[in-house]
Structure formats: structure tokens, C-alpha cells
Write a protein that binds this DNA or RNA. Sequence first.
DNA 1: TGTACATCAGTGAACGCGCGTTCACTGATGTAC
DNA 2: TGTACATCAGTGAACGCGCGTTCACTGATGTAC
Lengths: 188, 188
Amino acid sequence: MAETAANPRERYRNQVRAEVKQLARERIAADGAAALSLNAIAKRMGMSGPALYRYFAGRDELITELIKDAYRSLADTLRDAAGTGADPRGLARALRAWALADPHRYFLIYGTPVPGYRAPADTTAISDEIMAVLLETGRAAGSPDPGRTAMAFWTRLHGVLSLELAGQFDGMDLDREALFEAEAAALP
Amino acid sequence: MAETAANPRERYRNQVRAEVKQLARERIAADGAAALSLNAIAKRMGMSGPALYRYFAGRDELITELIKDAYRSLADTLRDAAGTGADPRGLARALRAWALADPHRYFLIYGTPVPGYRAPADTTAISDEIMAVLLETGRAAGSPDPGRTAMAFWTRLHGVLSLELAGQFDGMDLDREALFEAEAAALP
DNA sequence: TGTACATCAGTGAACGCGCGTTCACTGATGTAC
DNA sequence: TGTACATCAGTGAACGCGCGTTCACTGATGTAC
């Protein structure tokens, strides 16, 4: 969020961009990423559709921005947790809290690929960063094989979390937090 | 596939329904479930759009059919594997083969929920059936806690598989099959 | 401090698109006598 | 075996919708002298 606005115009620009993204997040939370529409967002801001083209090159650029923001936010969350000396279980809790706070943001990163949409290259760097945090945390916790710990962290916790967020546990008599904790505790 | 057609008309009806579903699967494989369109399918069959309303009440019914078929197919696959005496690792291999054969079919069941779409009640019965097979297989393999084994089977293998199918491993130097096998071998 | 000019936000009309769905109708197919 | 009738598949026109995006234009805002 490096938005040190030089001139007032740029400051305003950044404000509007932020507002558009906020409304986009809300719309995605309501109807999913596939249903995201520039026109609908404009209408909700009391503007005409074409106005948004001053702020985003098009629909795809907006989605790309949201994905990058989500990645950035997750990476920061995990790095912060690691910074306070958390072990893998602590990181796992941070991950779950982040995901529950906004399930659609989680699916924006790890969900079913959006048809016809190609993820930007920038995200690769951030996902590498996330991997590095997992590796370092595994190493610090004395794991005999930090690489395996990191991969298991990723795949197993994504497994429980994504099923929970998708509502697959919905009619089941099941303690979701306990299930997640059990998986976090069983990491190699 | 109980399609013992009484009269010729019903036989024809079933054929057309099957063809529509086949084309729908192809379109989903190409562009994802959100992009499924009755008109597009009709065009590809050389018919007008409204014609399909003789066979399906609407778009939602078609999607529902596809989801039920997918569930049915997965349940049969796992039950067949269990029937040949497979242990959880064997079941895991059957699951992966089934998912790799048609990734979008897998996401139809376990992917990000389709916006505004509610899964039909029938699927609950089939997912219970799948759970029962997992439980029984865990029990037969001498698991001390079959319930935990079944849940770990579901969540962990979904974790690796869905990330693989979504292309999250794409730029990584990684043996996917070995990773999956390691998870299957580590089941409690 | 005041004016002239460049910059930029936002509008409204327009284009072409594809969607789901309803409806009145034609023509072929199967059925009953 | 032949005819009369009911059933059903498929058509084409139509409705209303919202989408992404381009374009020429107006009016406000900031900047340079």
C-alpha cells in the first residue's frame, strides 16, 4: 500500500482505484469472481460504466490487481506470524484466520482457475516468498525435512480449508476447528 | 446408465440427452462450468436454442445432471476399487486416475462453489456413500481410527490433487505422482 | 494574485455480442382402430 | 394393412437483459507564467 500521493490528482486517482477494488471484492464475495462486472461496479459508485476505464485498462486488469492484492496480503500475514516466532502450527492458525475472514479472497488464489484467465507473472514471486516463509519456519522448528514440511503444510491445510470454505462439511456433525488443528498437529 | 428404453421415442430422447450432456462436458472442459450455455450447445448440435428445452427444464437442470453424474461416477470408481480388495492407497490411486481423466469433472464436485447455484439434495446421499466406502476400507486395512483415516483421505488427497489440477505446481520442479503417493502412504 | 492553457475525470450514445427463456406454429412419428 | 388422430421434436421470431469496450465531447481542476 505504498500510496504516497504526490499531487492531489494522483491522490484522488488512488482513492477511486481503492474504492473500485473494495466494491469488486464485495461483489466477488456475493457472486463469485466469474460474475465480476465493471458496469455493475460503476453503477454502484454512481458513475457510468466507461468512467472506470480511466482507472483500469479493463476487466482483466482489475481481476489481476485483486489477485495480486490477495497474494500480497497472505504473504504478509504469514511473514508477520513467522516474525513473532510462530511454529508451523502457529502459521497454520494464521492461515485459517486469514481464509475465514474472506473466503472468496482465498479462492481467488487457490480456487478453480477462472476460465480464460491467465495469472500474471508477478504472483509467482509472491508465491515463492510464501514458500520461503514455510521452509524457514519448518527449519526453525527443527523439522528433519523442511521441504516436505512446507509442501505438506501447503497441500494438507489447503485440503481441509478449501473443503470447509466451499461448504462441503455443511450437513456434517463435525468440529471444523478441531479437524484443522489435528491436521496442523500431524504435519511431518 | 439404466437406459432400457421402452418405446423408440424414449430411446431417442435418451440419446439426445446423452449427447447434450457430452457436449456440455466438453464445453466445461474448455471454458469452465460458469461459461456453460444452452444456446452454444444447441448450435454445436446443429439445432436451435429453444429445442433443448424439450430435454432439460433449463440451464440449472443440465448442470445438476452433470454434477450428479460426476458424483455417481466417482462413487462407482471408488466402490469398484474397494471391491477388488484395495487398501486406502489403492483407493487413492483410483481417485487420482479418475480426477486426471477429467479435471473439470473433479472441480464440478469439489471446486469453488458456482455462484448462485445450489447443489441438489440427491448428491448428499452419494457423498455419504463415498464416505462409507472410505470408512469400510480404513476398517478393512486395520486402521485404529477409521473415521480419522477417512477424513484424512478426503482432505489430504483433495489438497494435493486440487492444487495439481488447478496448475499450482506448474512452474515447480516437482514429481507430482511421488508427492501424491507420499501423502497416500502417510495416511493415519 | 490573476489569467491562459493544458490536463484529466466523467458522460451519454453507440456497437455488437450472447445469454436464458417463452410462444405460436409446422411437420414428422408413433398409435389405435 | 390402411387410415385418422394424438403426440411430440424442432423452428424462428421475439423479449429483455447485461456485458465489455470505443468514441467524441463537456466541464472541472491544477499549473505555469
